[in-house]
């Protein structure tokens, strides 16, 4: 594990005031015999949006799922290397995965609200973590979460209707509200807009930009434009290797690696 000094040294040349929130070192993932990620070293900075791009099957979602240990749910998956959150190795035995997931929330590719009411969807997380002592507190958490997810005005009159009855874009924002409700530090988004139409996508992208003020966001996306629009830093994956990472502006204008350039300009992938 790096000392604070070492961390600062690592920080100094590339970035300004943004601290490193998550640091992945030599992360390898195997699914059974097949290796999906090869020694990935990638940092995620606080209050920034980090986009993970790359062709299908390149390991970007696998890396994302390592960050809140969702890969634990796959029996054949093995993760090696270290991933630290605020300097603590999240694969350490002392780290409780439930607590980790309360700190690192996740929004999935397909909107997946619980088949319950809108209110229940948002209230579920705070309730199981005991974040609200009273009903009024819970109501407040639900309201602020829905407001932060920019969906409050659309659903405030039908909080007790089914969350599954909303449109796709609204469902995805509901899922974001659900993730926000447990006050995570990091929000992982796995292609959050791939099931949405352009208008809903635009709303979610605006939302991501706003959320950056309070949360660290890692987003996997297939859309180059989306990566360029919402992220400050971009990491390019290919065939399980991290090809290149850096400031989004630089990655999209002057990438170091030929593969990044080819991918961004649409020559492969």
């Amino acid at each position: 594990m790096l000392t604070d000094v070492a961390m600062e040294q690592k920080l100094a040349p590339t970035q300004d005031q943004h601290m490193i929130k998550i640091q992945g070192q030599e992360v390898c993932v195997h699914y059974g015999e097949k290796q999906a990620l090869f020694s990935v070293n990638l940092d995620v900075r606080e209050n920034q949006v980090t986009a993970l791009i790359g062709p299908s099957g390149c390991g970007k979602s696998t890396f994302l799922r390592c960050l809140n240990r969702m890969n634990d749910t796959i029996d054949s998956a093995r993760v090696s290397g270290t991933i630290t959150l605020d300097g603590e190795n999240i694969y350490d035995k002392a780290i409780d995965v439930v607590e980790l997931r309360a700190r690192v929330g996740m929004v999935f590719q397909k909107p997946n609200p619980f088949p319950k009411s809108i209110y229940e969807n948002v209230a579920y997380g705070p309730r199981i973590h005991g974040l609200a002592k009273k009903k009024a507190d819970l109501d407040e958490i639900v309201e602020t979460s829905l407001k932060k997810a920019a969906i409050w005005n659309e659903v405030k009159d039908r909080l007790h209707e089914a969350g599954t009855g909303l449109s796709g874009g609204q469902q995805q924002r509901l899922c974001i509200a659900r993730a926000i409700a447990v006050s995570p530090e990091v929000i992982l988004m796995d292609e959050p807009c791939s099931a949405l139409d352009p208008i809903a996508t635009a709303r979610v992208e605006e939302l991501i930009d706003e959320l950056r003020q309070n949360y660290t966001i890692v987003i996997v996306t297939h859309s180059m434009q989306q990566a360029a629009r919402v992220s400050q830093r971009t990491a390019m994956f290919h065939l399980g290797y991290l090809v290149e990472e850096g400031d989004t502006d630089k990655m999209f204008t002057n990438p170091d690696d030929k593969r990044t350039q080819d991918y961004i300009t649409g020559r492969f992938g």
Partner: peptide, 21 residues
């Protein structure tokens, strides 16, 4: 659907909570 399990685990439910809730 697995998406419901992921959703529950994603907000920090334990396995038991995921199953029973």
């Amino acid at each position: 659907p697995p998406s419901i399990r992921s959703a529950a685990l994603g907000v920090g439910a334990s396995r038991m909570q995921m199953v029973f809730h």
